[in-house]
Structure formats: C-alpha cells, structure tokens
C-alpha cells in the first residue's frame, strides 16, 4: 500500500472516527490487500473460551472504508458529470446535506433531483454510503453524521480517494 493511501486513511479517520485513527493505516492496508485480510476487518466471531469477550465489538473505520468503496461508482459519476470546481462543490455539500436530511420538504422547492446531474450523483453517494453504514448496524443518527463527514472528506481529499479506490478495486473482495 502506498504512503499516499496510508496518509489519506489517517486523514479520513481523523475526520470521521478520530478514536480509530491510530489503526487507520492497518485497516486501510488490510482493506486494500483484500481476501482474508479484508475479511478480518468485518469478522463477528463467537466468543472465545477464556477470552475477554465483551459482545462482538467492532470498529467503525472498516465500514467507512467499505462505504467509500461502495460509493466509488457514484464518485466517478459525480466527476464525469461536468463538475469543474471541486472546492466549490465541497462547499455545496453542506447545502446538499441540509437538503438531503429534509428532502421531503425541500425536494420540490429548491433543487429538483435529476435536473442537475452532479447533485444527482452526490445524492446517490449519500444513499450508497448511508446504506453501507446501515448494513454495519449503525444507528440512524450516527449514520447520518458519518455519512456527511465521509462524503465531505472523500471529495476534499480527491487524489487519495481515487488512489484508494483504484488500489482496493484490484484486490480480491471480502
């Protein structure tokens, strides 16, 4: 795994799950390696006799990486949809986040979904990442907050995001 991906993982963890930043390089390396290494990140084994088992604890960051990977097509679609200013778009994420959280109210009035392809791709990114975190068993409140932070960081740290996705895509899946 390249140093750039390692640094990207640490920055992502610091932004999303700061408690787990210390293991971010290990988690990212295992995810990129794929196969059994990646599977280890998501194991929910039974209790080990004599172990200090406290009920199937799992770290969150592996699911963040998984969500980033799952959002790869949406990220690609977003950038191939004619976006010219990434920093400007990052600022717009905040507005989009508000719209996403209150979509029933604002959908019709403000930015109609489907009328602007970049927003549509971003919206899909939110959906995919939130669904992936949901599969990890996270509570809706935690999911909402993490989704926003992940999307913002993925777009903010674009080179690292792309390098991570390219590297992880080459590995055998989990």
């Amino acid at each position: 795994m390249s140093e750039e991906i390692e640094a990207w993982a640490v920055r992502l963890a610091e932004a999303v799950t700061p408690d787990e930043a210390v293991l971010a390089p290990d988690f990212a390396a295992a995810f990129v390696a794929g196969g059994a290494d990646r599977a280890d990140l998501f194991r929910t084994s039974g209790a080990v006799p004599g172990a200090f088992d406290t009920g199937g604890v799992l770290a969150v960051f592996p699911f963040v990486l998984s969500a980033a990977m799952a959002a790869a097509p949406a990220i690609e679609a977003f950038f191939s949809s004619g976006v010219t200013s990434v920093p400007g778009m990052v600022k717009d994420v905040i507005g989009l986040w508000d719209r996403y959280r209150h979509r029933e109210v604002t959908q019709a009035k403000e930015i109609p979904l489907g009328s602007e392809p970049p927003y549509q791709a971003l919206d899909r990114m939110f959906d995919v990442i939130e669904a992936e975190l949901g599969r990890a068993g996270m509570e809706p409140d935690q999911r909402d907050l993490l989704t926003y932070r992940i999307v913002r960081h993925l777009l903010d740290d674009l080179n690292g995001t792309r390098e991570f996705i390219d590297a992880a895509a080459k590995a055998p899946g989990r």
Binding site: L41, T44, S45, A47, P49, A51, F52, D53, V57, L58
Partner: peptide, 13 residues
C-alpha cells in the same frame, strides 16, 4: 496480535 480484528479484545491460549 491481529490489529485488523476487532470482534474480541484479548485472550490467552
């Protein structure tokens, strides 16, 4: 150790 597993804390064997 296996730092990539987080489904247990520690055990002796």
């Amino acid at each position: 150790g296996n730092t990539c597993r987080t489904d247990f804390r520690a055990f002796v064997y």
